[in-house]
Nucleic acid binder design. Structure first.
Length: 640
DNA sequence: ATGGGTCCT
DNA sequence: AGGACCC
């Protein structure tokens, strides 16, 4: 039965040809035309196709490779930094054509169904591309080739359109799209790749490895069964050594063998999930969508070595690794705004058992603190890691691999790209229409906003203040510990009820009274930091006191969560640094990222607008007035 | 094996 | 925390 058009998918699987080796050749043109191998430690991890044609496969020892081919040019590829950067460029090109699911630096699946459908809107589009095609005979009337597919320069004149099924039509148009994608990648990044086009991720991946390098293979529907039937079960992505061994025990070698085993039998030996997966896979079925997995869930650095038997040696290794980790975490923060919560240490000891041992701990906030030098932060990492090692290894050990990394990333206020660079953000406010801020965090950001609305609408009408820029609100913890506050992030445009007093300090006191009167039990509200002390001062204070007045003159709240408060200060330090005498002069109280302007009764227009939750641009006269005092803040906009 | 990653249990 | 899998 034919698939309904709504079920048809066209998936392309891309695989950059010998990625590391190609990268080295691209960055060092004198290598072009020569056999090249990329090394990590004592291994040649990959070779270009020239080297392969001269007898050097990938994953051989350097000694062996040199013996086979003395002319082999070896390049060290232990530092993945350039590969990561190039991979990102390539993935960005792919991303223009559909959702991309990366797997490793050099591979990815792209769902190009939408592209295909768009081209079929106006009937069968003109085709012009070269591809290997399995099942060619069914759509052309020409003879086909089952080993690797028929190589054809496709154009519409070769096709017997009336004979082609909807699925195959889509796959052929998809191949046209893929041909253009490969050209785009090569033109924009220099990289050549191989590609498979099929109805699902598994088949596309299998097809992509059929013809290399720099070739594409299309697997038409009629050829699926006979293509996969003779393949070893191990070829199914997801079937590794262990599963292969169990299948062999069941008498299964090929996909054809696998088809004869019942789901029950498979599930018995391998668990229901893998059982069902294999049952589908050997029939060419893979219903899993192409999913963008987002930024990495862990960032780690590691090294391997021959002997590391003392803590001093381990620390030496960590001192090399830690700066790399810090650098990568910083880059990640610039890109994503998130922060890792856990530090993991993983190692392998010498011996027949090659398994990794791993431990994790809370990642010390100092590791990410912008006020500490990179060296200081690296030293913190080394210290924590070495303590972890000492605790878990005892005194006699022999490490061969050491890995340190960060996981458990959480969104922060700066995870929102719109507020990541508050400097440009604030500058942009005056000139551009207000950007809708997206609340992306899966946590309680939405709930917080909702409860905030409840709070602001429940409060009596009256003069109101509004947050001008990025703000942080203190979320009341719970009733059980009065005077306890957890610090979280608020949002641009959140509104706060302030006092009608023109005296800032009274305003804050009123706010505190509101909180005390019970509003805070269920609602987030504003808190008040002033930026008169550096993080270090606060940190010292926090360390010396269990509960501390935040700051002298304007502090209202106490905290019973010094650790969380400290975390908050570290997280937001870069924002807090924005504090400038200018904003003081402007009559704006910048309180640790909170930009408040107190509205007196005279500003009824704005007060009303806030009540109605309108967007209110600052009036020209207001702006002029303020600009005459200072020019740092360009807009006063209230949202919702 | 290398220097990374993923997801599941 | 460890295992199986992927490149």
């Amino acid at each position: 039965m034919a698939d309904s058009p709504i079920d048809i998918r066209v998936i392309a699987h891309f695989d950059i040809d010998c990625f590391y080796a190609q990268s080295e050749v691209l960055r060092c043109p004198s290598l072009r035309g020569r056999p090249v191998g990329v090394t990590q430690k004592f291994l040649v991890v990959t070779t270009n196709y020239i080297a392969r044609s001269l007898g050097v496969p990938k994953m051989v020892s350097i000694d062996e490779a040199k013996k086979v081919l003395p002319a082999l040019v070896l390049v060290n590829g232990e530092d993945l930094t350039p590969y990561r950067a190039e991979s990102k460029q390539i993935m960005a090109v792919l991303g223009r054509y559909g959702v991309v699911q990366r797997s490793g630096l050099d591979e990815g699946a792209v769902d190009i169904t939408a592209q295909v459908k768009a081209r079929l809107q106006c009937g069968f589009p003109a085709l012009s591309f070269s591809s290997h095609i399995l099942g060619w005979e069914a759509v052309s009337g020409e003879p086909g080739n089952d080993s690797g597919g028929t190589f054809v320069n496709v154009d519409s004149t070769k096709l017997e359109l009336e004979k082609i099924s909807g699925v195959d039509t889509a796959l052929l148009v998809g191949s046209q799209v893929v041909s253009e994608m490969r050209s785009a990648i090569e033109k924009e990044t220099g990289f050549q790749c191989s590609c498979g086009v099929a109805q699902n991720k598994m088949l596309a991946k299998l097809a992509s490895s059929l013809n290399k390098p720099s070739k594409q293979t299309c697997l038409l529907s009629g050829a699926v069964e006979r293509f996969i039937a003779p393949l070893p079960a191990r070829k199914i992505p997801g079937v590794g050594r262990q599963t292969e061994a169990i299948l062999l025990d069941l008498g299964v070698q090929t996909i054809t063998d696998l088809k004869k085993v019942s789901v029950c039998q498979l599930s018995e030996r391998l668990g229901a999930r893998i059982g069902q997966f294999l049952y589908d896979a050997c029939r060419g079925r893979d219903y899993t969508p192409v999913l963008d997995k987002g930024p990495p869930k862990s960032i780690t650095v590691e090294d391997s070595f021959r002997n590391c038997t003392t803590l001093q040696q381990a620390e030496g290794i960590l001192r090399v690794l830690a700066p790399d980790l810090i650098k990568r975490l910083d880059e990640d923060r610039v890109e994503t705004g998130r922060r890792p919560k856990s530090l993991t240490l993983k190692w392998r000891v010498q011996g027949p058992k090659w398994n990794f041992i791993s431990v994790s701990t809370d990642l010390p906030v100092e590791l990410l603190s912008p006020s500490l030098s990179k060296e200081q932060r690296a030293a913190v990492a080394v210290e924590v890691a070495s303590r972890l090692l000492l605790r878990n290894l005892g005194h006699s050990f022999h490490l061969v691999v050491l890995n340190i990394g960060a996981t458990n990333f959480v969104e922060t206020s700066t995870s929102d790209p719109a507020v990541r660079d508050i400097r440009s953000f604030l500058q942009a406010q005056g000139n551009s229409p207000r950007k809708e801020l997206k609340v992306t965090s899966k946590n309680d950001a939405r709930a917080r906003r909702e409860s905030f609305k409840t709070m602001t609408s429940a409060l009596p009408a009256g003069p109101t203040g509004a947050v001008l820029g990025l703000n942080f609100s203190a979320v009341a913890d719970s009733q059980k510990t009065p005077d306890t506050h957890i610090f979280g992030s608020g949002h641009v445009g959140d509104e706060y009820q302030l006092s009608n007093s023109s005296d800032e300090e009274d305003g804050w006191r009123d706010l505190a009274d509101q909180l005390k009167s019970g509003v805070r039990a269920s609602c987030p509200t504003a808190t008040n930091f002033t930026q008169t002390q550096s993080y270090k001062d606060v940190s010292d204070q926090l360390q010396s006191q269990q509960s501390t007045d935040l700051l002298h003159s304007k502090s209202i709240f106490k905290t019973s969560h010094p650790a969380k408060l400290k975390q908050f200060f570290v997280e937001n330090e870069d924002v807090m640094k924005l504090e400038s005498p200018d904003s003081q002069r402007a009559g704006v109280t910048n309180t640790g990222g909170l930009h408040f302007r107190t509205q007196t009764a005279g500003s009824s227009r704005i007060a009303n607008s806030i009540a109605k939750r309108e967007v209110v641009p600052e009036s020209t006269s207001q702006k002029k007035k303020r600009k005459s005092r200072n020019g740092t803040l360009d807009a006063f906009v209230i949202r919702k």
